[in-house]
């Protein structure tokens, strides 16, 4: 029996027990899940897969990613995520983790990034290399305080544009990110919504991604989180690791500054 099945069985049993006492809130249930698997998050497997990918020669150039510069120098993974997104001189643009990984996969390994971005997220049938790499790299910032800079003019600009995208209303429902995440103590149905304009909520939300989603049985990255928010916002799909997503990430990451990064996490 694999870990996923054991976990699901345990959760099902837990769910049945919970059904008897309906007053338990969703957040309490998640706390219970966390307690149950406190000695191991299924995201650990994705993290291990990502580490393996990082260290294995691949692509037309048969190179590993061990010389990838994530902002703290070639090959430095520890603490890199806590300072992303940031401006990179070699590409001349602000990049988040995923867009920087694409740069490394292209320059070091010679991989075709268009193929990667065409299907960037894991499915039940097919894992995603870039997603697993993200889980690995973020895991190397666990416990490190978020310290994203806006000193470079391009970083400042990305933040400013990200803030505007956060408030950008469009689509058939007139929704912006801020429609659901711009006021405190709100929920959709029973789901609590963080107010991402308030530091405490923004920190709590940002530092918990990537996360293993129990309901999906998959580890999901921050790029995935944004993608699924836009789906529910009734927007078209944001292109993976595009400037719009990087700028929005910049705005949210800066709001999380000062909090110790806690991912990869675990969610319902």
């Amino acid at each position: 029996m694999n870990t996923k099945i054991i976990l699901l069985l345990a959760l099902a049993a837990n769910g049945a027990a919970i059904a008897a006492e309906t007053e338990v809130s969703d957040s309490d249930r998640i706390a219970q899940y966390r307690e149950m698997i406190s000695d191991g998050n299924p995201a650990d497997f994705d993290e291990m897969r990502g580490e393996e990918l990082w260290k294995t020669a691949a692509g037309p150039k048969m190179a590993t990613l061990e010389k990838c510069d994530l902002g703290k120098g070639a090959g430095v993974v520890k603490g890199a995520y806590a300072e992303l997104p940031r401006f990179f001189k070699d590409t001349g643009r602000v990049q988040d983790l995923e867009s920087r990984l694409l740069t490394c996969m292209s320059t070091l390994q010679g991989l075709n990034t268009e193929e990667i971005t065409a299907q960037p997220f894991a499915t039940e049938k097919k894992p995603s290399d870039i997603s697993s790499l993200t889980t690995y790299v973020t895991g190397q910032s666990k416990g490190i305080k978020m310290a994203v800079s806006v000193k470079h003019p391009k970083e400042k600009e990305a933040y400013e544009i990200g803030r505007r995208i956060f408030n950008y209303r469009a689509g058939p429902y007139d929704f912006a990110c801020s429609t659901c995440h711009g006021a405190s103590n709100q929920r959709i149905r029973m789901q609590d919504l963080p107010n991402l304009k308030v530091q405490k909520d923004a920190q709590g939300a940002y530092i918990s991604w990537p996360a293993y989603r129990v309901s999906q049985g998959l580890t999901r990255s921050f790029q995935w989180r944004l993608n699924d928010c836009f789906r529910q916002q009734r927007f078209p799909e944001p292109k993976f690791a595009s400037e719009a997503t990087v700028d929005l990430t910049m705005y949210l990451a800066v709001s999380a500054n000062g909090a110790a990064f806690a991912g990869p996490g675990l969610k319902r």
Binding site: I161, P236, P238, K239
Partner: peptide
Amino acid sequence: IVKRDFQD
């Protein structure tokens, strides 16, 4: 940016 970075 928004007009360029969202797709069908």
